[in-house]
């Protein structure tokens, strides 16, 4: 019997289409995210203040939050569905599949939940930033750290 790479119907066909469409969207979202955080910026300069400057920006904040919201949810579904497809090739017994699928979708829903919660509920904590800067200033005055963080 020929092995169909593209499923013939049902959930598996929907998953097949989802993997391809979400993958194409993630090419732009994830590569753009990497380009901004690793090439345009330096990861060593990313901290609470950097994140709050993006998410809590007056006009562009909504765009960053929408970007991250779409990216995190598509990436989690794409990644965990990929893991399910890999494991299904090795785990055939029905009871074991029920177990792995339950674990996989629980983890996916949990991570999508906390990620979505973080993006919606974030509020800039200016008091924390001021306190962090004051502590850093003390270290600068004690000549323990350099006054300026690493330039781009």
């Amino acid at each position: 019997m020929a092995r169909h790479v593209k499923p013939l119907g049902g959930f598996e066909l929907a998953a097949w289409f989802f993997m391809r469409i979400s993958g194409l969207i993630l090419v732009f979202l994830a590569l753009g995210h990497l380009f901004i955080t690793h090439i345009l910026n330096n990861v060593e300069n990313i901290n609470y203040e950097f994140v709050s400057n993006r998410w809590a920006a007056p006009t562009t904040g909504v765009i960053w939050r929408l970007w991250d919201l779409t990216m995190i949810n598509l990436a989690m579904l794409h990644g965990f569905n990929g893991l399910r497809q890999v494991l299904d090739e090795y785990i055939v017994r029905r009871s074991r599949r029920v177990l792995t699928h339950t674990l996989i979708w629980s983890a996916a829903i949990f991570l999508m939940g906390i990620g979505t919660y973080a993006i919606f509920m974030f509020e800039k904590d200016q008091k924390y930033i001021d306190q962090w800067k004051a502590e850093r200033q003390q270290l600068v005055e004690a000549k323990l750290v350099a006054p300026e963080p690493l330039a781009k």
Partner: peptide, 21 residues
């Protein structure tokens, strides 16, 4: 699979932005 492993860590650490700066 490697990217998924990183993403799990990355989602958890980014959650600290809200939960515990």
């Amino acid at each position: 699979l490697g990217i998924l492993l990183f993403l799990i860590i990355h989602v958890l650490d980014t959650f600290f932005v809200v939960a515990w700066p």
